[in-house]
Nucleic acid binder design. Structure first.
Lengths: 352, 352
DNA sequence: TCAAAAGTGTTATCCTTACACCCATGT
DNA sequence: ACATGGGTGTAAGGATAACACTTTTGA
């Protein structure tokens, strides 16, 4: 299996495992660029939003905001990220966290041409939608879009999304049945197993956190536009299929999928929702936001008890004249909990 | 607070958020290098081990294995990582996962000189210690070291580590009391709060996953050798303090702390322990490995029930003539669980 | 026979889930 | 009055945490 290359012992001077003084990258064969990409998330009523930049050329694809990283100007990448986002959009970023570094060869490939090698450090950033910032946003060519436009199969709030049975499942089934000439030995699981786990087929429960797994399968099966663009789609599968979500530039949809996965997970053990919610809110509003992000419907009473017993919020004393019906008590996030160590989030369990 | 820089609206041509054709890094002011660092973990009896490379110069520090990443040679970073590790050490890496990308300015600084800018993508890799590989390891100048040598305060298996009360707590207390001239506004929590959360002071429980938080605090307080080396230590605090763990090159100890944090967390919801354990094992052996990694003592019966009800293992039928005492039944990992979706790890709860 | 480690039974307690029902407001 | 959404009580079932105890080997 493994290339027990004899070079290990016969090489005159084996390359050291140490960096030494530091190998100059200028000498390297491939120039590498480093950039930062941000998945900036806000929520508006029922819709989670993601900030995207407009396509440069007509017919192009949207992408995530991008900025180069210059260590001379900014001490850390996070500082650099906040700087370029705030400068261009006036958005105040709240919670920011590094997601993953995307460095696959050919990330910027275009039909045959492998393209320059661009590494991108992906970040998740949470913010609130601000009216004042909308103007600056427009100017910089960015705008908010509902994230389920990119992943229609991830929104289970009204039940199982129709696109799953109508388009995705049959196409994936065909892909599973296309006998892979030789199953790759580095893939421990067969196609069908992977699909079952990711999409919750058979007795496997659907796990809303596996957004990335699902997207990667669809890409690998050639069912999303990016796969076709990158020349990885087989026409047989693609044929007759409606577009599966709105495509994005380069591998930005993969970055977004990573962001959603991470956020859906984080929600459960860190109080990050409150970065997305105004200073005071009703419990139902809070629930709607959690539902919007996690993409599933929650049990009202249990959600309320959860919020209550984690002691994450307190009443403001005021009430909101709600959208029809009895007025709702307003709550605020208890910032003290950050100091209390009970860093529990809203750990949603069980099924919707 | 925030620099609502007027440039946003008055700039003639605001820099686009898009990458455009791709800004050539060659033009950038600072050359950036990219490398991969691996925290390679194995377990030997009671000790979790980490593979380190020897210091290049006498009196230098150990470091994590390092390899440059060349996208022409390897399609992805993970492939590149496996290649350079296997080639040089003959180790077969099992589970591999990207940890974090470390890009702070001055990572490679040395007393005043800011050094070249080297970005490092840190990886966690799990493997088994192989006798056959030991020779190749020696040749390449790498060797296994118990990881608690670098973090003595993380091993709670025999109870609270003495170094905490003997050295760390008093020094941190002094650091907290040194009135920070002006509390930095970007730090929401005061020093004392951060220490309480990270080290579990007062009524805050000690959380074994916060390895990174603890190390970062010690670094910030100037209590670890790396901080002194980087010129960030104040002599007043440092004085009379025994060394707090074995130092490492550059920020490698931070990378290792990240790896331990991640592994301790992952253990609880993915079956990764089995990457570290031989093909068949007794339940006590398994427990010892989990204890070694999580750094805490576990309740025997509860551990066994946990393992049993997750259906992660099955009996081989054989027994091991154990190290004194009644023979123990041997178990093996049920690989099928990977296909069953019940991807639960050994979610240890509660206190030891 | 004793030490050492394997392996088991049981209970109080808490958390989760899912019921069904009541309350306050605007139209 | 009634529609609409806010807000609550409670009981069944399951998972945990912490007890103490029995069994099987080697010396």
């Amino acid at each position: 299996m493994s290339s027990r290359s004899p070079s290990t012992s016969s090489r005159p001077a084996p390359p050291s495992l140490e960096p030494g003084p530091a190998p100059a990258n200028a000498d390297a064969t491939t120039p590498i660029e480093i950039g930062l990409n941000a998945a900036i998330v806000a929520v508006d009523r029922l819709s989670p939003l993601i900030l995207v930049t407009q396509p440069g050329n007509a017919g192009g694809e949207e992408g995530l905001p991008y900025g180069p990283f210059d260590p001379v100007e900014h001490r850390t990448m996070e500082i650099g990220l906040r700087a370029f986002v705030e400068e261009q959009t006036r958005l105040k970023l709240g919670y920011v966290e590094q997601l993953y570094t995307f460095g696959d060869r050919g990330r910027h490939a275009r039909r045959g041409d492998i393209g320059p090698h661009v590494m991108s450090v992906g970040y998740l950033a949470l913010t609130r939608r601000l009216e004042e910032a909308e103007e600056a946003l427009e100017e910089s060519g960015a705008q908010w879009r509902p994230w389920y436009g990119y992943f229609p199969w991830e929104d289970w709030r009204q039940g199982r999304p129709p696109i799953l049975d109508a388009a995705i499942a049959p196409a994936l089934k065909r892909w599973c049945e296309m006998a892979p000439a030789a199953e790759r030995p580095d893939r421990p699981l067969a196609r069908l197993e992977r699909v079952r786990l990711a999409f919750g087929w058979g007795n496997v429960p659907f796990d809303e956190e596996r957004v990335l797994d699902r997207y990667e399968l669809l890409y690998e099966a050639g069912l999303v536009a990016e796969a076709r663009r990158d020349g990885r789609a087989s026409a047989a599968l693609w044929e007759g299929l409606p577009p599966l979500g709105r495509p994005m530039r380069f591998d930005h949809r993969r970055i977004l999928a990573t962001a959603i996965s991470r956020l859906r997970g984080k929600l459960k053990y860190r109080p990050v929702v409150f970065e997305l919610v105004p200073g005071s809110f009703t419990l139902t509003e809070l629930q709607k936001v959690v539902e919007a992000i996690s993409g599933r419907h929650l049990h009202k009473q249990n959600f309320r008890r959860l919020v209550e017993q984690t002691r994450l919020v307190e009443q403001t004393g005021e009430t909101s004249i709600s959208t029809g019906g009895r007025p709702a008590a307003l709550f605020r996030f208890r910032r003290e909990v950050m100091k209390e160590g009970a860093m529990a989030g809203l750990r949603l369990r069980g099924r919707p």
